[in-house]
Design a binder for these strands. Structure first.
Lengths: 251, 251
DNA sequence: TCTATTATTGTCAAATATACAAAATTTTAT
DNA sequence: ATAAAATTTTGTATATTTGACAATAATAGA
């Protein structure tokens, strides 16, 4: 810009920032979409629930820092999960200590073990996202906003990618996958139509002529399926987020 | 994590980072989608083309910093453009001077004036994105990657939001809007179907019984349209990115 | 006036989605 | 053992949406 005589800012004084990563880890437990929260053991916000996260190390990539935080809190390595950058948050007052910009990530894990407190956390839990979205759980910093944005991104990605499979173990039935969508979107989906969409998406493949029983409760045994290769974008959406009768919320 | 006796990292030593914003400003000029680039006047990468950007000031919001950079380089205020955060880039070696994390934004402007050099730029230009995507223009830092990601996000948002209208002046014809899509996706769209989709999207409204002529070349005069209110998500996609005969590239 | 050009509306067939029925194959209850 | 219920899977009829393209409208320019 046309810098006049008096420049209000010296571009050579790089203002010092701290940079952190925070990760919204989603999983499904007892038919409920949950987010991993830790209870902070240090000021600021000591004793308050927050997303797992921490400072990016001097020689560490942002993605690596997020993967490290993910593994520290869950024991799950990057290969066993889906991890994607969301966006950054950096209002000047978001951390009372100093100027901190956080790079937020979201992750999806299958069958997350009940987390143990560790590091600077005095507690940890898998909290139903309805409690966060409903405002019943107040999080530290701007983490309520981050969770809201992460949920929106995750729910939207379910429509046109195969990321939903990351909520399941490597081998899963189509009904198990459908229950992922039903928990994440809080709505019922038609089993027949969902089945057809999964097959047509081209993102999944049936495991040989196997059958699965164990999943109790009677009914015809289901075939096992797996992600066909990596996590490519499927040609067709797995499911559209539209209403299907039932007592659940509308989208 | 189960911190053992020897912790490999002291969490109280906040590693100092510099934080910048970089903005990929898109516009359309002579039927061509272009991105605003500046020629750096300072080391590193002096004389190399780069995205406009700069350091976030100590008391400045990230969005404000991006809006400031946008206005400094284009003279366009946030109200006249669309500005959205993309994501952050922070590999340790991306800036040879020091550890810099950049928060990338993308913006859409209508009728951008040919930019003047200013500040730490010795040149500026609106470069066709094909030259950047084709690898004919090598940008400073990781800005080639940022432009690629910004393009992908922008093109994808054209499908299900009304952001394309921001390439046009406040009042525009449906054909002008169609040419935005055609330039951005590098493909022809069927005029009739596009017209129907715009009307059905619910994101635009026709300006009273006005007509427009001036847009030379003969033909029936077109109605003027405008974004109906802010930039909400339309109920229906404006256009699907599928082929329509012609000599342009396939999607 | 006649032709070319662009805008707008309309039409029809193909593709897709939705609702729902039916068949297959198991567990659980009687 | 038999019946009933549950669950997966395939199929089908209808409605909706899309894509291709025709038809009409309204102008500029020759």
């Amino acid at each position: 810009m046309p810098d006049t005589v008096q420049t209000p800012y010296d571009p050579h004084a790089y203002p010092p920032f701290a940079v952190t990563v925070d990760v919204a880890v989603f999983t499904i437990r007892s038919e409920t979409l949950r987010v991993l929260l830790i209870e902070r053991g240090e000021e600021p916000y000591k004793g308050v629930w927050a997303l797992p996260g921490g400072f990016v190390r001097p020689d560490e990539d942002l993605d690596s820092a997020a993967a490290r935080e993910l593994e520290e809190e869950t024991g799950v390595t990057k290969r066993g999960a889906y991890l994607e950058q969301l966006q950054s948050y950096g209002t000047p007052e978001r951390d009372p200590r100093m100027r901190v910009v956080t790079v937020a990530y979201w992750a999806v894990c299958a069958n997350l073990a009940l987390p143990k407190a560790g590091g600077d956390a005095i507690g940890a839990d898998l909290v139903p996202v309805t409690e966060v979205e409903g405002g019943y759980v107040r999080l530290a910093f701007d983490h309520n906003e981050i969770v809201r944005d992460a949920l929106e991104r995750m729910r939207s990605k379910l429509e046109y990618t195969a990321v939903g499979a990351k909520f399941c173990p490597p081998e899963f039935t189509i009904s198990e996958l459908r229950r992922v969508y039903e928990a994440a979107w809080n709505m019922k989906l038609d089993p027949g139509n969902f089945h057809r969409n999964v097959r047509a998406s081209g993102s999944f493949e049936r495991l040989d002529p196997e059958r699965l029983v164990e999943r109790s409760k009677g009914g015809r045994p289901a075939s096992l399926w797996a992600l066909s290769e990596g996590l490519r974008s499927p040609r067709l959406p797995i499911a559209k987020r539209r209403r299907f009768d039932d007592d659940m919320d509308e989208p």
